Amino acid sequence: MNLDTLENLGLNQREISTYLALLKLGSASIRDIAAQTGINRGTTYETLKDLAGKGVVSYFPKGKRRIFSAEPPEKLLELAEEKRQSLEATIEEMKIRLIPQLNHLKPDFSAGNVRFYEGDSGIEFVLKDILNTVAQQKEREYSVFSSKLIRQHLYRPFPNYTQQRIRKNIKVRVIAIGEGGEDAELSERKWIDAKGRMDASYIAIYPPKVAMISLGSRNYPVAVVLDSPEIAAAQQIIFETLWSTL
């Protein structure tokens, strides 16, 4: 029997053991429950009080003693439903009030608005951040400057990135520096004919953020993410101006 689900209801292992013992015993005293679980009587009493507070155990007096009974297992389902409703209300409260209020406490710009990532795991995090951020916006679209040399390395840690983007119905416009680049659904591409030396670079504009990815020695990827509506807006103007001329 897999009882891990009960832990998600806020029951610890001692409470689960006590509840199961009561189910087997029916009605029982603290002494009998403690003997069944192997937990000392003082701890058993405190555990039973906690379970009673959660509504899954009840008791009645019998002389000078208390006799405890487990509520039917269906009570656990009711407890889960109560937690679900409470969590939904909490999420809604966070969306409407708490998160906006917390964001007002942040300075307009600080060192926390600039984040550095490196290696394949870091690049994967940035790529996922692009998708997650854009997916929450009304206009699901972002813009990219991408050079030829970085393309074979960019999606190495996230090979199904394009499929995920399409699944989320996110559109991308790319100004490609140098020839090549894949044709994909929900994607538009224009090219700049690069002559001479060309470095590996990738700039994604997904307001309020801008991500800049490049390659270090031995093709080691590094990234900087700026969380700044002003910088993102300026980069978007540059992109739109150049896009209209190509």
Rank of each mutant, 00 (worst) to 15 (best):
M1N: 09
D4Y: 14
T5N: 08
N8V: 01
N12L: 00
N12V: 00
I16E: 11
I16K: 11
S17Y: 05
A21L: 05
L25C: 04
S29E: 11
I33M: 06
D50C: 07
A52R: 10
K54A: 02
V56R: 07
S58Y: 07
Y59F: 13
E71K: 02
P72W: 02
K75N: 11
E78G: 11
E82F: 04
K83S: 07
R84M: 08
S86R: 04
R97I: 04
L102Q: 02
P107C: 10
G112E: 15
E118Y: 10
E124I: 01
E124A: 12
K138R: 03
L154G: 06
L154H: 07
F158A: 11
F158H: 14
F158P: 11
Y161F: 15
I170R: 04
K171R: 12
V174E: 15
V174F: 13
E179W: 06
G181W: 09
L186C: 05
S187P: 04
A194Q: 10
K195E: 14
Y202V: 00
I213A: 02
S217H: 08
R218T: 13
R218D: 15
V222M: 15
V224D: 05
V225F: 15
S228F: 03
A233Y: 05
A234I: 05
Q236P: 03
T241S: 09
